[in-house]
Amino acid sequence: MTQFDTLLAPIHGFLHCRTPQAWIDEARKPENLPLLLTDHLVCELKAAQTAMWLIRKYVADKASGDALLAWLRPWEDFVHNDQADLGFLEQHKALSKTIISREELPYGDALVDKMVLLIKEELHHFYQVLEIMQARDIPYMKITASRYAKGLIREITTHEPQALVDKLICGAYIEARSCERFASLAPHLDDRLSAFYVSLLRSEARHYQDYLELAQLISPKDISARVQKIGETEAKLISEPDDRLRFHSGVPAFA
């Protein structure tokens, strides 16, 4: 078994379905590469935003939370407001774990440690995807989101701490699916892009495991039933027809 297979085996065991061949056939078309790279870029920011939101809502005090929000704003301005200045792109290297945790939360330090590392890596991937787009003269343009994340959010319970546990489980599935999609697409892309997607497998594989570990740490009971239920919803979103092609979309209904 290769290192590639070793990384993918637990992901395939975790996910309830593989990416449909119809999605791969559509996504591999050269004319769809600008769309997929743009959506991938936005997905990296959304992953960082999710991790930042978890820290701010559940762990950090107000001053730290406000500082984090201000720190992330340049990336959000670029995606949402067509900001031209790209001087912020390497600021992710300066983010540290010096965030004040609420003393009454026993899981605070674990959540901060894992989420800060995830934020730094996701924003580094954002930088890498943007570099690839610029090298190929692909301009960034705003696109609509897929139904995938909203479909998962509908599964989240409203009461705490189960709501936090469910959010972490959803995060695990999003990261695992990203990893599986990288692996599904890599053999069909040019050498540079294929190597880039393969390079993402290691960190993305750890991200989904970090989310699951946090979910079990925080939950007062075994999370297996919730993992199963949310996994069934995730597989349905991936397997059903979708009217737009995105990195996490379902079977292309328009192909």
Rank of each mutant, 00 (worst) to 15 (best):
G231K: 02
E180V: 02
F126C: 00
A135P: 14
L72T: 13
A70L: 02
I169E: 00
A27M: 00
A27F: 03
T6I: 14
D25S: 12
K46E: 12
E31C: 01
A22H: 07
Y107L: 00
R56I: 12
L105R: 07
L68E: 03
I11F: 01
D61W: 08
Q228C: 10
L245S: 11
A172F: 03
E234D: 15
H125S: 13
D25M: 08
M133G: 08
N81D: 09
K229Q: 15
Y58V: 03
R206E: 12
I55G: 09
I153K: 14
D85L: 13
L41T: 08
L86W: 05
C170K: 07
R18T: 07
K221F: 09
S184I: 04
P241G: 01
V59N: 12
P161C: 01
H159P: 07
H248S: 00
Q216K: 14
L130A: 08
L212C: 04
P20T: 05
P30W: 01
L8Q: 07
A255W: 02
I223Q: 05
L45M: 13
D109M: 04
E234V: 02
P161M: 01
L193N: 15
L245Y: 14
N32S: 03
S203R: 08
Q134K: 15
K57E: 10
Q21P: 10
D109A: 04
E180F: 02
Q216R: 14
D113W: 04
L130S: 09
G151C: 08
I99L: 00
H40W: 15
A48M: 15
I143K: 09
V165L: 13
G65C: 01
A195V: 09
I24V: 11
A60E: 02
L7H: 00
F254K: 04
W75T: 02
Q3G: 14
K29F: 10
Q128Y: 06
V165F: 12
A195D: 13
L189W: 03
V59Q: 08
E131L: 05
W23V: 00
F14Y: 06
Y148V: 05
Q3T: 15
C170P: 00
A84Y: 05
E104R: 04
I156M: 13
P252E: 06
D210Q: 11
L15F: 00
S224K: 09
D82K: 08
K120A: 05
I99W: 05
I24L: 10
A22V: 02
Y58P: 06
A48N: 15
H80D: 14
Y127Q: 15
Q21N: 09
L33C: 09
D166L: 03
A225L: 11
R246G: 04
P187M: 01
R56Q: 15
Y140G: 04
V112S: 11
I156W: 10
P220W: 07
D166V: 03
E232D: 11
R246P: 11
I24Y: 07
L35D: 03
F182C: 12
V112D: 13
Q216P: 00
A215N: 04
P10W: 02
D109R: 04
Y140A: 07
K114D: 12
A47Y: 00
Q3L: 15
E104K: 03
F4N: 05
P20R: 07
A255R: 02
I138Q: 07
D5G: 11
A195N: 12
E121L: 09
